[in-house]
């Protein structure tokens, strides 16, 4: 008896967003990365198109962060002391994108406050060290973010950086900087479909084309609220495919940051029950599982921290894009 596999056709399509600009396009990147364009749910390639594979961004910092897991220092070695070296190491680890995180007083061992001049320098050095497109996130303190990111936007004019994170409190400053200097923004809202949509509307109302906006619905790590984030992403994507123009943005999430702040990843042998197993294996698996889960929810950009996770997640993406067969 012939069996017909039911197929759903959607009217909507996720917008394509291109990160980075080559020399011909007014920047200095050796290549650009385009995400989005889906006409179906993630990896359902028999139903619709997924023209671009999800991209992996590797997170680096402008100086050695004080609050990262020892496993990450071990993995990156000396590179964590210098953003340019770290960026090259990230590229070597297989990154599609580099996420430069500007440290604030909390992440800095000496508690110093970063200056705009330092931020400009760090971005300049990373741009010179790698040809990959760049995302630049501030320390997460509203006033400081504004000060640093406005300077960064000016320093890297024309590079089509992704500036982040852009929230409802500071979107005006960041969007203005992106508009003035030819960049993109990452619009983050706390796990709510309506809030995500509202921020996209506010950003659009300021005149930034939606082809320059990533939607960041926030997430939690595996075991720490990922179900909630997953559900929000799934609903956003279904709304997008059903034609809701204000949800049709590619989605960026930060599973690396979420997974590596947990006790399971941070606390080594001795601090936790022996039954938890090998520390490094556990921590990397946590990051990989968090990231792959989010890919299934519709993530277009996943930001990771450990080089081993990058390799594993890229392999998963390759296989899923090849329809489940070995993509190599």
């Amino acid at each position: 008896m012939p069996v017909t596999i039911p197929q759903t056709k959607y009217a909507g399509k996720v917008r394509e967003v291109t990160i980075g600009a080559t020399r011909a396009e007014g920047g200095t990147r050796s290549r650009t990365v385009t995400v989005g364009g889906e006409t179906t749910l993630p990896f359902l390639l028999h139903e619709g198109e997924m023209p671009h594979p999800p991209a992996v961004a590797v997170e680096i910092c402008d100086r050695r962060p004080a609050d990262w897991s020892p496993l990450l220092y071990e993995a990156w070695g000396e590179a964590v002391n210098d953003p340019a070296t770290w960026a090259r190491a990230a590229e070597a680890a297989g990154a599609d994108l580099v996420l430069l995180h500007l440290t604030g007083p909390v992440q800095r061992a000496d508690g110093s406050t970063p200056t705009a001049q330092e931020a400009r320098q760090a971005v300049r050095r990373v741009l010179e060290a790698t040809g990959l497109p760049l995302l630049v996130f501030g320390p997460g303190i509203a006033d400081l973010d504004n000060e640093l990111l406005v300077a960064v936007a000016e320093e890297a004019a024309g590079e089509r950086l992704v500036l982040g994170v852009c929230e409802d409190k500071n979107y005006r400053t960041l969007v203005a900087a992106a508009l003035a200097h030819g960049h993109l923004v990452d619009g983050r809202t706390p796990m709510d479909v309506n809030l995500a949509k509202q921020l996209m509307i506010l950003i659009r109302d300021m005149g930034l084309p939606l082809e320059r906006v990533l939607m960041d619905p926030s997430t939690g790590a595996l075991g720490y609220g990922i179900e909630y984030g997953y559900s929000v992403m799934e609903r956003l994507r279904l709304a997008a495919l059903n034609g809701d123009a204000m949800t049709q943005q590619p989605m960026l999430v930060t599973p690396g940051e979420e997974a590596w702040r947990l006790k399971e990843a941070k606390v080594g042998d001795g601090g936790v029950p022996a039954a938890w197993g090998d520390w490094a294996e556990r921590a990397i698996t946590w990051e990989v599982l968090t990231a792959t889960t989010l890919l299934h929810a519709g993530a277009d950009v996943v930001c990771l921290r450990h080089p081993a996770s990058v390799a594993e997640v890229k392999a998963v993406i390759a296989r899923l894009m090849a329809g489940g067969k070995d993509g190599k």
Binding site: N194, L195, K197, I201
Partner: peptide
């Protein structure tokens, strides 16, 4: 939540 906007999301 969708009404927490002017005029509406």
């Amino acid at each position: 939540m969708s009404a927490m906007f002017l005029p509406h999301t």
